[in-house]
Simulated assay, not measured.
Amino acid sequence: MEQKWSGKVAIVTGGGGGIGRAVARRFAQEGARVVVVNRTAAKAEQTAEEIRAAGGEAIALPADVSLEADVSRVVADTLAHYGRIDVMVNNAAICPQVRLTDLSLSQWNEVITNNLTSVFLFSKAVIPAMLQAGGGVIVNVSSVHAVATLEGYSAYAASKGGIAAMTRAIALDYAKENIRANVVLPGAVHTPMLESSVKNLDTPKEEIMRQWNDSQPIGRVGQPDEIAAVVLFAASPENSFMTGATLVADGGMTIEL
């Protein structure tokens, strides 16, 4: 039986860990050739090596997703290596916790460029290749912070809300040209980003993680593979009628009063 993504090419940003790594591995398991993009070269290569060790096909391309030159290089190298781009997963993000009045302009710009501008740059760079090939799909990983947030997340929430809005605009711009765009809103997921956000000298990490688990309606935080499954659903050609959609995977977080 042929794998669903056999012969297809997927670029995954932030593929060196957390949700991005899970997405990259899942696409490879389904037969896709995966381009793992990460700021840290060693992390990108580690994911690519894991994929190859499991019998999949992947290359690692280190890049700063906020820089147009790096984005252009990744897309050009992908086309040179594989000749096509079928799926673009914009997942890379940073998440400092700083209250608005304590946030410097440089910190604000860093969050916006890494989280939001990167989606613009990669989408703009891959769409011409997708158009030439007759279609493609973009899946953007936003966050529940796009619709509800916590203290200290002003820049992050703004960037993630922007991703959700931009996804709808991309979907509309290219709806008649067989390019679909959907956005996934994860809730609390057990990733290095979440662990770094619970660093607290007064409270042991294990206790904070227990509190995170207990605070979720479903009784636990999510796992990266659970978000990867939603990303693949959003990208799947079986869902060819779905574009501009917002898919929430948050363990019930945003439905609780």
Rank of each mutant, 00 (worst) to 15 (best):
S196P: 11
P186W: 02
N178K: 14
N109S: 14
K176W: 04
V183P: 03
A129R: 09
R180Q: 09
T149L: 01
H145P: 08
G152V: 09
K160T: 02
A175H: 14
S143A: 03
F120L: 08
T167A: 05
D202L: 15
V198R: 12
L103P: 13
N213A: 11
N115W: 03
K124L: 08
R180S: 03
V198F: 07
K160G: 00
K160E: 04
R168E: 13
T101A: 00
N213S: 10
E151N: 12
L150M: 14
P128H: 12
H145G: 05
L172V: 12
R99P: 05
S159R: 11
V184A: 10
N115P: 06
N182S: 05
Q132V: 10
A171E: 02
V119Q: 14
V141H: 05
N109W: 03
N115S: 07
A157C: 02
L103H: 06
N115K: 06
T167I: 00
Q211N: 15
L103G: 11
M193I: 11
E195D: 10
T167F: 04
I127N: 08
S196R: 13
N115C: 07
N200S: 12
A188F: 08
Q107M: 09
L131Y: 13
I179Q: 13
A169M: 07
W212L: 04
T149G: 06
T113D: 15
E207W: 03
E206S: 15
I112Q: 10
G162M: 02
S197M: 14
I179Y: 11
T113F: 08
H145C: 08
A146V: 05
V184N: 11
G187E: 06
H190G: 04
I170S: 04
L185R: 09
I170W: 09
K160N: 01
